[in-house]
Design a protein around this nucleic acid. Sequence first.
DNA 1: TCTTTTCCTGACCGTATGGTCAGATTGAAG
DNA 2: CTTCAATCTGACCATACGGTCAGGAAAAGA
Lengths: 210, 210
Amino acid sequence: MPETPPRPRRNLARARNEALILQAAEKVFAEAGFGGATMQLIADVAGLPKANLHYYFATKEELYRRVVQTIFEIWLQAASAMDGTDDPAQGIGAYIEAKMEISRRHPNGSKVWASEVMHGAPVIQDYLETTLRDWTAGRVALIHRWIASGRMAPVDPEKLLYMLWATTQHYADFNHQIETLNGGKPLSDAQWQEATEAVKSMILRGIGAL
Amino acid sequence: MPETPPRPRRNLARARNEALILQAAEKVFAEAGFGGATMQLIADVAGLPKANLHYYFATKEELYRRVVQTIFEIWLQAASAMDGTDDPAQGIGAYIEAKMEISRRHPNGSKVWASEVMHGAPVIQDYLETTLRDWTAGRVALIHRWIASGRMAPVDPEKLLYMLWATTQHYADFNHQIETLNGGKPLSDAQWQEATEAVKSMILRGIGAL
DNA sequence: TCTTTTCCTGACCGTATGGTCAGATTGAAG
DNA sequence: CTTCAATCTGACCATACGGTCAGGAAAAGA
């Protein structure tokens, strides 16, 4: 019987090529959107024949889904930065730092995520309704505790989270606009540091946590 | 000589149809992106034959350009809200209110703008480098004057502007995510009011203008 | 070495898309 | 009514796209 149990065999080239394709796909999806991206262009960026993409990823949708999932996992990785302290300045400060770092390191991923949500989240709606909703509810409760303990002003927790997401992701999603206003040059290391500090100080002061 | 001077003649139907097409195009471009939008779908939404679109707008790019220009004009309309006062709380507060109102009234326009910038601003790069850069420089100077007069804390003006843009536009660009976290329902009038007040109070406190 | 499975790819296909065009229709002007 | 330019549209076209497939190349097992 020609069974095909998932025993790992020649998965070295497999891992390498999948990573190559996913990286190229993230870039192309971020720059052209799902509708504007073509499998041919992704293949060219990855340096592989188009038919080879379809060997690893049956459809364009499947490839896109994998890209979005990867981004969501990075997002979740930063999500825990808020925990482990009863000082809102420290918890939210660490979260801002983590999210700014993601904006810097993974601007394409952030753009794909933004594009996905802007278009009605056709692929990750279930994530929004489960993982994201649960995470949000947990942080809302945490912020309420911080407020109750008098460590920060009584702000609306959800609106604070929106401001955190918006402000930090803006540095990835709108990096082209920021670069243009920066004289056409990407932010330097020092400027990233300044931006992170500026966001931290404005928000932490805004919620009375300093 | 078959000259065609721009004398207004039957421009009633023209104005009506152009508006119809632009409205449909804004919606479709916002929901599908430039690459994902099709002239056929725009035509269906507008209730016109596809060939009629090409009578008014020669190419998809030209139609898209007009949509983006319309949005930019709305954006400029709100841009003046910051002026005319030497109180930063009032100036920035009015600007936040104006931008939140735009996010509420023109979420599709905001999405098209965001998508355009995310994809590297292929169409409106010149606007970024001229109008937007000039406007930004003017507001940076204004904020510096506010700081110098001791009416607000010495924050980095550009980072403050980014936070204003990001936070207010987030309510348009990510309204699907916000709706999902709001139990699947759009924000009510009262919730929009609350959000506006929350943004105003957090930011104004964050810059020491309260 | 021989066999088997995985991996790879050029060539191809059906479809959908942006755009064109010849001709019909409309409405203002004389 | 006649004229003429503006408006409108069904039918059509060339292209580009996502996806398929037969068969070759390469590695692993025996």
